[in-house]
Design a protein around this nucleic acid. Structure first.
Length: 780
DNA sequence: GAGTTTGAAACT
DNA sequence: CAGTTTCAAACTC
């Protein structure tokens, strides 16, 4: 009860407190609001803390991603469930999505959000695995400004709130619920139904998976109290400022969540604006209302998206997090009850309507989140969606996209082109089936979700879009997004591999091919999910690390999402090492170079001149350090820049110097976590976090987080490159200053990681006098 | 945009 | 494990 949350939450909480649920939660609540921590940090901590459970393949960076994925999942799930027609919803969805995707990017997102001024009032979701009902309530106000007339000018973002709703549950329950609502309130109910219908298909199966996923993923805050009918499945409080809290949930809770049939939800944010919205919003009432109201008023806020407190939060009281309330249905039958409940008169109707709205809102929240991410868009270029995530996300995205599109912010979502792709909200609505399908995926998504989120920005979007497309032909294909995103969307151009081999960047990255792909006879699509998975498994059977990120970064690298999180430890290396003979490791032909890492002993390259670090151990040329630091995504961006520079500079000077440090940063923000399996940054945008492919797939279909986890765990190596680290790290560890031929001094990437940003700054220092090869390098 | 180069992936 | 082939990205023009 005493939880700090209250303080933060403020008034909203008070209501909440009144509710038994609240008290219950409090009792349980392990959750503690995390305050100060930056979101990015949170992620980091989170992600790092746990190995990339999601992926089989070891990805160092994944940890972070994984969590994001979860977030996505939630979002997705919510989306799926909620397809909202309302433009408002769209907005929310967008936000939510953005949020999810941008956990890392928080700062950016927040900024954007503020700009966008999206406010999400509430989201209450009920997800029933069994019965869980997913009611998302959105206050009318939710509509925030997206441009919809209804929307309040108040910028949600300002208030910031990003709320993410996670809905696990079976869609069925939701549907029923909707139906009830319809009965009660035909108009509202219909709308809801529509939305719900979309969701329905998935829901049932998914719900359970979700839970498991969520629980597994841990990152998610979900927990259910089986006992309580209405028990919250999960509440997450989070102050925007403090992102991290999510993870704070006690394990117990998490576990409990597994048991729980219901899903949880979450989220959100809140800001004064939200509150305002809430105020506007008046819950219909009725039995359900309580829940709804709670949700509305007391939104469970999830810090998931937490934005950088610095940026946005500061403005906002932040404190408030909406609480997501979920009803829980102990029994499937219960679900039916719930359905009835909603149906119950006004309440149901109102609830329904509300719920429906809420759902939509939830999505919106997601969207809103995305918005925040918008800023990120650009940044995010790389978010890669894993197939798993994609599947889910796609669905979710679908929902979201539309909304986002409506808001227009979506477009921004960078790379997330996915969002862009998102065709339109309409699609979502149109394709309930897809949603159902998504449900499974969603489950998986929970795991992958993080990735999605990360990748999400870009890849995910793509994937999603694809899925949507495939799944729902009806749907309007993704609205093209802003041109900017398109870049991120770049994909493969496979002609003979059917995109089922590692030749295919998409496949290798664990994502489905998307429209942007120019591939022929592509099987790497959700439609061929089975094939993809089977193929993937085969490949993994041969090489368990086949889908692991090619560039392994030392744990140190774990950077905070925020700023330096990107910093890759100096130890970062290419998984297998390159075998370059003619490119001197100075071109993207070289995977090491492409990945922004120096060549290591493991490389068999000839005439290595890798600017990031030579095989011989010679210190990488100044530039190196930076690139290494960045995540793959970042790397790509960095690399690209570096390459460009190198091209320019190299012509004159050694390529080594070519890489600029700055780009990395930039990229980082965009895609902090992600790193493509290949490390193919090339695509710039796609940094999908590589999720272990296996994990993804498994998660997708199976929706069994556990399995995935196990898999993931199996591959320790990926998770931590410690092995590699030693040499490199050591080198890096010591802040080595390298001078680029250009005369720039560069600290080794490691330095960046380990070191504070200050180092970076130091990098820029130019030391012409210093020999290109720093004696510093410990290596021979 | 076509053609070439390159090196990873896949195959033997 | 080594050698060869296939493949698609990266690169050049």
């Amino acid at each position: 009860m005493d939880t700090p949350e209250r303080n933060q939450i403020g008034t909203s909480i008070s209501k909440f407190e009144d509710s038994p649920v609240f008290s219950y939660i409090n009792n349980l609540s392990p959750i503690k609001p995390v305050k100060s921590v930056h979101i990015t940090q949170t992620f980091n901590s989170l992600s790092f803390s746990s190995p990339p459970s999601v992926f089989t393949s070891p990805h160092v960076s994944f940890h972070k991603e994984s969590r994001f994925l979860k977030g996505h999942n939630f979002l997705d799930s919510s989306k799926s469930k909620v397809s909202s027609d309302d433009g408002n919803k769209d907005c929310t969805n967008e936000q939510a999505i953005t949020n999810a995707g941008h956990l890392y990017n928080d700062s950016n997102d927040l900024r954007q959000c503020t700009d966008s001024a999206v406010s999400i009032e509430d989201a209450s979701v009920e997800a029933p695995c069994e019965h869980t009902e997913f009611a998302i309530e959105l206050p009318q106000t939710l509509k925030y400004d997206c441009g919809s007339p209804d929307c309040h000018p108040t910028p949600c973002c300002d208030n910031e709130t990003v709320s993410v709703l996670i809905l696990p549950g079976n869609s069925a329950s939701v549907v029923a619920y909707a139906q009830d609502a319809c009965e009660n309130n035909p108009t509202e109910g219909e709308v809801q139904l529509q939305e719900i219908s979309q969701v329905e298909p998935k829901a049932e199966g998914a719900g359970c998976d979700w839970e498991s996923l969520i629980s597994n993923d841990t990152d998610l805050l979900i927990f259910n109290s089986p006992n309580e009918p209405e028990a919250f499945k999960g509440l997450i409080y989070k102050s925007l400022d403090s992102t991290p809290e999510f993870y704070n949930f006690p394990p117990q809770l998490l576990q409990s969540s597994n048991n729980v049939q219901n899903m949880q939800i979450v989220e959100l944010v809140s800001s004064s604006s939200q509150r305002e919205t809430e105020d506007h919003y008046q819950p219909g009432a009725a039995s359900d209302q309580l829940e709804v109201d709670k949700t509305q008023h007391n939104h469970a806020n999830i810090a998931l998206l937490a934005d950088n407190p610095n940026e946005k939060m500061d403005n906002e009281p932040a404190s408030t997090l909406h609480r997501g309330m979920r009803r829980r249905c102990l029994d499937f039958e219960m679900a039916g009850h719930q359905r009835k409940n909603p149906a119950d008169g006004s309440s149901s109707g109102s609830c329904m309507s509300q719920s429906g709205k809420k759902i939509a809102d939830n999505d919106k929240h997601l969207l809103t989140i995305k918005r925040s991410g918008e800023s990120q868009r650009c940044i995010l270029p790389g978010i890669g969606l894993h197939l798993n995530a994609l599947a889910k996300t796609s669905k979710d995205y679908k929902n979201v996209k539309p909304e986002t599109l409506s808001s227009g912010e979506q477009i921004n979502l960078s790379s997330s082109s996915s969002s862009l792709h998102l065709p339109t909200t309409s699609q979502e609505h149109q394709h309930p089936l897809s949603i159902s399908a998504s449900s499974e995926r969603d489950m998986d998504l929970a795991q992958d979700g993080l990735q999605l989120a990360e990748d999400g920005s870009q890849a995910s979007a793509y994937l999603v879009s694809e899925e949507f497309n495939q799944n729902s032909p009806k749907k309007k294909r993704r609205k093209l997004e802003p041109a900017g995103e398109i870049e991120a969307c770049k994909r493969c151009n496979c002609k003979k591999s059917k995109c089922l081999k590692l030749y295919c960047e998409c496949f290798a990255a664990g994502v489905y091919c998307i429209e942007p792909c120019s591939c022929q006879d592509c099987f790497n699509k959700p439609i061929h999910e089975d094939t993809v998975i089977a193929t993937r498994k085969q490949i993994e059977s041969r090489n368990p690390l086949a889908f692991a990120p090619k560039v392994i970064r030392s744990l140190d690298s774990v950077p905070e999402i925020g700023e330096e999180s990107n910093k890759t430890p100096a130890s970062s290396r290419h998984k297998r090492g390159c075998n370059c003979k003619k490119s001197s490791c100075l071109k993207k032909y070289c995977e090491c170079y492409q990945g922004g890492v120096g060549c290591s002993i493991g490389c068999r390259c000839e005439g290595c001149k890798n600017a990031f670090g030579r095989k011989d151990g010679s210190a990488p040329i100044g530039i190196e350090a930076e690139p290494g630091e960045e995540t793959e995504s970042c790397e790509k961006s960095v690399v690209d820049k570096a390459l460009q520079k190198t091209k320019i500079q190299n012509k004159e000077v050694d390529p080594d110097s070519a890489f600029p440090a700055t780009p990395l940063r930039f990229s980082r923000q965009l895609v902090p976590l992600s790193f493509s399996s290949k490390g193919k940054p090339p695509r710039s945008s796609s940094f999908l976090t590589t999720i272990s492919s296996s994990g993804l797939y498994t998660s997708q279909k199976l929706g069994k987080p556990t399995i995935l986890r196990s898999q993931k765990f199996e591959k320790p190596s990926q998770s931590v490159p410690d092995d590699e680290v030693p040499e490199i790290l050591h080198d890096n560890a010591s802040p080595i200053v390298k001078t680029s031929p250009n005369s720039k001094r560069v600290s080794s990437p490691q330095c960046d990681f380990g070191a504070s940003p200050s180092r970076r700054s130091s990098r820029k220092l130019i030391l012409q006098s210093i020999p290109s090869f720093p004696s510093l390098t410990p290596h021979h």
